[in-house]
Design a protein around this nucleic acid. Structure first.
Length: 365
RNA sequence: GCCCUGAUAGUGUAGUUCGGCCUAUCAUGUGGCCCUGUCGAGGCCACGACCCGGGUUCGAAUCCCGGUCAGGGCG
């Protein structure tokens, strides 16, 4: 299931294998909340070397119904994507003020933008999971925004741990179940949570509730407070983090898996990632720049289109432009992760990290 | 030559009827900041204009006169 191939200090590279699907770690998962990436197809995910994506149980359960997953025997066939599919539990939607109605001891009441409110509780999300049949299901957690008091995080932890334990009761054979640690921005709570979740014997461990507005340094501290208590032989997943510089820092602190909408959302808004820095395609000096976003990039976008054309599409606010820009950033992320894995294998991770961080700032010209 | 119509940021415009709520609207543009387990094809900030001259008035983008320019009509 999870095999570590090589470890350099805390950074490691390995393989996550489930249901005959494989992904080398560390890997980055683009998001496909509703069984589709915004503006990109399953095929484009596959052709950009994306070996894993993450969907969302809450949104998938809404409308029209779960029947389509029953009829196709699961999400892979339904969306015709054959990589690993994670399924998020809906806990993160607690952060959306317009979705959260209330939290009780037993679960979360979420507003359904299209109908009746939905009460997300462990048994329910596990039932949804048994129909969607992802490769990895995330246990239900209780997420609070950044900036709450220690007491509030503590209280949320009790719920998180209770719900996590309950999810384990409904675990199915073909789906791995990952538990999510919480604890806000308090080291002691992070440690308590990591210990508690680790003891429950999940297939993998996630660190949640980060990347929601706290300073990067705080995030790193929280990871350092959690990782020592999470079984070294199980995959560690930092939920929601997608800034390349943060990913590097977190890998060197022992994280294996990431997901985020960040590269996709930024792409749509004209911020393109390259190995020389972040390029802001909205700037007027690209108006007549008939070269690709990144010279040696092998993505569909860079092979076929120029900055001038893509900028034009961006300014037109055209969906086709958003699609091509998204494809580039996804491809970049996969290349980035590949280089990281290679550098760990070749003992050059620290050098790669240093060199990358020096270059990875906004391109000014 | 005469008559009519119009002139507001780089661009396109709102406001002009009936002067004051205009330190002038909106969009776009340009520049900056932001986006982290996606309800949302996004958010915030800055820059930037009343064609020129005179008059009436407490007060003019707005009314009057002259000029310039543009479009249309008549010779």
């Amino acid at each position: 299931m999870f095999t570590i191939i090589k470890q350099l200090n805390q950074a490691r590279t390995g393989v996550l294998e489930i249901n005959n699907r494989k992904a080398e770690t560390p890997f980055f998962m683009p998001v496909a909340t509703k069984a589709v990436g915004r503006f990109v197809t399953s095929e484009e995910y596959e052709s950009s070397n994306t070996k894993a994506i993450i969907a969302n149980a809450f949104f998938l359960s809404l409308s029209p119904s779960l029947e389509m997953f029953e009829k196709t025997n699961g999400i892979h066939n339904f969306m015709n994507y054959n990589g690993i599919i994670f399924n998020d539990c809906g806990g993160f939607q607690m952060l959306r003020e317009n979705l959260l109605k209330e939290t009780t001891a037993n679960g979360i009441l979420l507003k359904n933008p299209m109908g009746k409110d939905v009460f997300m509780r462990p048994e329910k999300i596990m039932h949804i999971s048994s129909i969607i049949k992802p490769d990895v299901m995330m246990a239900l957690d209780c997420v609070l925004p950044f900036g709450k008091t220690k007491e509030e995080y503590q209280e949320a932890l009790i719920k998180s741990h209770k719900w996590s334990k309950e999810c384990l009761k409904y675990k199915t054979k073909d789906t791995l179940l990952f538990g999510i640690t919480q604890g806000g921005t308090f080291k002691e709570l992070r440690k308590d949570s990591a210990k508690a979740i680790n003891e429950m014997n999940f297939d993998g461990h996630a660190i949640g509730g980060l990347g929601i507005g706290e300073p990067s340094e705080k995030m790193f501290e929280m990871i350092e407070a959690s990782v020592p208590f999470l079984d070294n032989n199980k995959p560690r997943y930092l939920m929601g983090v997608g800034k390349p510089d943060q990913i590097l820092e977190c890998i060197s602190r022992g994280v294996d898996i990431f997901d985020s909408i960040y590269p996709q959302k930024n792409a749509r808004h004209g911020m393109l990632f390259t190995f020389n820095g972040i390029l802001d395609l909205g700037k007027s000096n690209y108006k007549f720049d008939f070269t690709p976003i990144e010279k040696d990039c092998q993505c569909l976008t860079c092979k076929k289109y120029t900055k001038a054309y893509l900028r034009y599409l961006l300014k037109k606010d055209d969906a086709v432009g958003k699609r091509y820009l998204t494809i580039h950033n996804i491809y970049f992320m996969q290349e980035f992760m590949k280089k990281i894995r290679e550098s760990i294998k070749e003992n050059t991770f620290e050098e790669f990290k240093k060199e990358f961080l020096e270059k990875f700032k906004k391109i000014k010209e």
